[in-house]
C-alpha cells in the first residue's frame, strides 16, 4: 500500500509542535514583558498639561515644599492639586502678564478650574491613601522620583502592583524620618535597612497586615 505520510512527516510534526510551544511561550513572555514595559506603565512619558508647569523650577530652584501646593497629602487619601488661587499667591505679583500663564489667569477670571491630566493613575479598584504613607515616613520621591529635577512631569517609577508589594513586604529600606518626607534629594549615611527598622520600631509599624488583599483592594 502507498505511504500516506512521507518519512519526514514525523519531523515536521515535531517541529510544528515545538514551534507551537515556543510560539505560545514566547507569546506569553512578550505579553508579560509588555505588561511591565514603559509603554504600558507610562513611565518616562511626559503627559501634556494645560500649562507647562515646571517642578524643576518651583520645587527644585525655588525650593517650594511639596505641601505648599499638594496641601492635603498629610491628612487625606488624595494629595490634591493646588487650586488656582494657590498659583495666584505668587503669580498675581510676579510673571503676572506672561503669555505662558494665560490659562491660569483665564481660570481665575472666568472662575473655571484648570483641567490637569493625571500623570499617575491608579485603577479604580486600588485604593491608595497618601496620608498614611507620608505619616509612616515614605518619602515623596520614593514613588514619584526626583520631581524636583523634572522640567515637565513624568512617572519615574512604574507604580504597578509589584512595586507596591515589594515595599509592603519589606518597608524598612524605603522609610525615612517623617520630617524629611518632602525633602528633595534626601540621603543618609546610615544603612537604610538599619534606619528603616529603627523607624518602624519607633512608630509601631507592623508589616504583617500590609499584604492582606483588602488593605488596598476593597
Amino acid at each position: 500500500m502507498a505511504q500516506i505520510f512521507s518519512r519526514s512527516a514525523d519531523t515536521w510534526l515535531r517541529l510544528g509542535l515545538l514551534m507551537l510551544f515556543v510560539g505560545l511561550a514566547g507569546g506569553l513572555l512578550v505579553v508579560l514583558a509588555l505588561d511591565r514595559s514603559d509603554y504600558r506603565t507610562g513611565r518616562n512619558w511626559v503627559v501634556e498639561q494645560p500649562l507647562p508647569f515646571s517642578h524643576a523650577h518651583h520645587a527644585g530652584e525655588l525650593k517650594i515644599d511639596c505641601r505648599y501646593c499638594h496641601s492635603s497629602v498629610e491628612s487625606s487619601a488624595m494629595a490634591s492639586l493646588p487650586p488656582t488661587e494657590t498659583c495666584m499667591t505668587c503669580h498675581s505679583q510676579i510673571w503676572k502678564n506672561a503669555d505662558v500663564l494665560e490659562p491660569l489667569r483665564k481660570s481665575l477670571r472666568e472662575q473655571q478650574p484648570l483641567h490637569w491630566q493625571h500623570v499617575v493613575e491608579l485603577p479604580d479598584y486600588a485604593y491608595f491613601h497618601h496620608g498614611v504613607h507620608v505619616n509612616a515616613g515614605v518619602g515623596c520621591s520614593e514613588c514619584h522620583g526626583a520631581v524636583d529635577r523634572m522640567q515637565l512631569l513624568f512617572k519615574a517609577e512604574p507604580l504597578n502592583m509589584g512595586q507596591c508589594l515589594a515595599c509592603h513586604r519589606d518597608p524598612a529600606p524605603h522609610l525615612r524620618p517623617v520630617g524629611q518626607v518632602t525633602a528633595p534629594q534626601w540621603h543618609t549615611d546610615e544603612n537604610r535597612r538599619v534606619l528603616g527598622e529603627r523607624l518602624m520600631k519607633e512608630r509601631h509599624i507592623d508589616p504583617r497586615g500590609l499584604t492582606d488583599c483588602g488593605t488596598c483592594h476593597r
Binding site: S71, S80, L81, P82, P83, T84, E85, T86, S107, L108, Q111, Q112, P113, L114, H115, W116, Q117, H118, E121
Partner: peptide
C-alpha cells in the same frame, strides 16, 4: 480612559 484632575479655583 484619560482621567483629569480638576481642583477648585478657590478651595
Amino acid at each position: 480612559t484619560p482621567e483629569q484632575a480638576v481642583p477648585a479655583v478657590r478651595q
